[in-house]
């Protein structure tokens, strides 16, 4: 078990049914699973004595919680003013086409999740996007596609390696 898993388990185990613990529990679950699976909701409901409807309401209220698994690489495309003017929409179209997903969607192979954000705070690089902690600036649709393809090639290589080891 990793630390996050221990944390989630520990929180559930020691929970005494007192109110006010729901959000930390949901955060632990999300850290553990990468999203909040339905069974975790059912489980937390039983432990905290909170109806599933209320928990689902809390999850859907806060944008920090996810109900779908997230891809390995998180793409955050900036749609702030500067990037918008510099053509963020054409980038978004290109990424959607390249990945085959809509905004907030995860690719079938679970490698990418595509988000749009209001501003990344690097307007001088417009149009920009971040993949995980890496920032890419002055993008064109072709450059964006190339970046995605490069990461995908590396992921494919990794997967093959793992297969051959197994």
């Amino acid at each position: 078990m990793n630390t996050q898993e221990v944390d989630f388990t520990y929180r559930l185990w020691r929970h005494d049914g007192a109110p006010g613990e729901l959000i930390p529990l949901l955060q632990s679950a999300q850290e553990h699973f990468g999203y909040i699976p339905r069974r975790a909701i059912t489980y937390i409901s039983g432990v905290t004595n909170t109806p599933e409807s209320t928990i689902y309401g809390v999850i859907t209220f806060y944008s920090q919680f996810r109900l779908q698994p997230m891809g390995k690489h998180r793409i955050r495309l900036c749609c702030g003013t500067a990037c918008h003017v510099a053509g963020a929409q054409t980038l978004l179209d290109a990424l959607r086409d390249e990945l085959g997903v809509e905004e907030n969607g995860t690719t079938e192979d679970g490698v990418f999740t595509l988000f749009t954000v209001a501003c990344l705070g690097c307007c001088s690089l417009a149009p920009a996007m971040m993949i995980n902690d890496e920032t890419y600036g002055s993008l064109t649709p072709a450059a964006a596609r190339k970046i995605i393809r490069t990461i995908r090639r590396e992921e494919n290589k990794k997967a093959e390696k793992e297969k051959s080891v197994a």
Partner: peptide, 17 residues
């Protein structure tokens, strides 16, 4: 809830599909 508290590994029950 009581039955769950007695479960030694609550986490194992709640894995994602």
């Amino acid at each position: 809830p009581q039955a769950q508290k007695a479960t030694p590994k609550p986490c194992a029950e709640a894995r994602p599909e």
